[in-house]
Computed example of a mutant assay.
Amino acid sequence: MDLAHVAICVSDLDRALAFYRELGFEETHRFTLSGVENVYVDRPGGDGALQLRYDPDRTTPIAPSRADTDHVAFTVEDVEETFQTALDAGGAAVLEPTEIEPAGAYAAFVEDPEGYTLELYRGL
């Protein structure tokens, strides 16, 4: 079984697309269903996409909580460079690049503009 995609709700589709494009994601396809715009983005050669869901009629705030979904992880070649790119694109630092020995990883955590936490990592 392979991961196909992770769907996240966004309050500003243009802002979300701009952020993920800065991180090297490309739009693969989109459709609107029941008034909700669905845009899929993936990194070239990626093995799992993000589905950005934008509902212009949504009446409740989007409030990602690490208590419910802790983070979405992406492998990257250069943790420091990708971390800085994410900050420059409007992300917020959660954890600076650091070695996480028990996980066998070198990783950084950043919050995207909607508040979702992303882990950027490579193996040790």
Score class of each variant (00 low, 15 high):
M1F: 13
M1I: 15
L3V: 01
L3Q: 00
L3C: 04
L3Y: 11
L3F: 11
A7S: 14
A7I: 09
I8N: 03
C9V: 15
C9Q: 15
V10S: 09
S11H: 12
D12N: 06
D12R: 02
D12K: 10
L13S: 04
L13W: 00
D14S: 10
D14R: 13
R15N: 10
R15Y: 00
A16L: 01
A18M: 07
Y20Q: 03
Y20V: 06
Y20E: 01
R21T: 08
R21K: 12
L23R: 03
G24L: 01
G24K: 10
F25C: 05
F25G: 00
E26R: 12
E27K: 15
E27R: 14
T28F: 04
T28M: 06
R30N: 02
F31G: 00
T32E: 05
T32R: 10
L33N: 10
L33T: 03
L33S: 11
G35H: 06
G35Y: 11
E37D: 12
N38M: 09
N38Q: 07
N38F: 07
N38W: 03
D42Y: 07
R43K: 06
P44S: 04
P44C: 00
P44F: 03
G46V: 07
G46K: 06
L50A: 07
Q51W: 05
Q51L: 15
Q51A: 12
Q51D: 04
L52C: 07
R53T: 13
R53F: 13
Y54R: 05
Y54D: 01
D55T: 09
D55M: 05
D55K: 09
P56M: 12
R58N: 03
T60G: 01
T60Y: 05
T60P: 01
P61H: 03
I62S: 03
A63K: 14
P64V: 11
P64I: 14
R66P: 11
T69C: 13
H71N: 10
H71V: 02
V72H: 05
V72F: 07
A73V: 09
A73T: 01
F74W: 15
T75W: 14
V76T: 03
D78Q: 11
V79Y: 02
V79C: 01
V79W: 04
E80L: 09
E80I: 08
E80Q: 11
F83I: 05
Q84M: 05
T85C: 05
T85D: 05
T85S: 12
T85A: 13
A86P: 00
L87W: 00
A89P: 02
A89G: 05
G91V: 06
G91S: 09
G91N: 04
V94F: 00
V94Y: 09
L95A: 11
E96S: 07
P97H: 06
E99F: 11
E99K: 09
E99T: 15
E101S: 09
P102V: 12
A103Q: 15
A105C: 08
A105I: 13
A107R: 03
A108N: 05
V110H: 06
E111P: 06
D112I: 14
D112F: 10
P113W: 05
P113G: 12
P113L: 08
E114C: 14
Y116Q: 07
Y116D: 01
Y116W: 00
T117V: 15
T117Q: 07
L118Y: 06
L118F: 13
E119R: 10
E119P: 05
L120E: 00
Y121L: 15
Y121A: 14
Y121R: 12
Y121F: 15
G123S: 13
L124V: 13
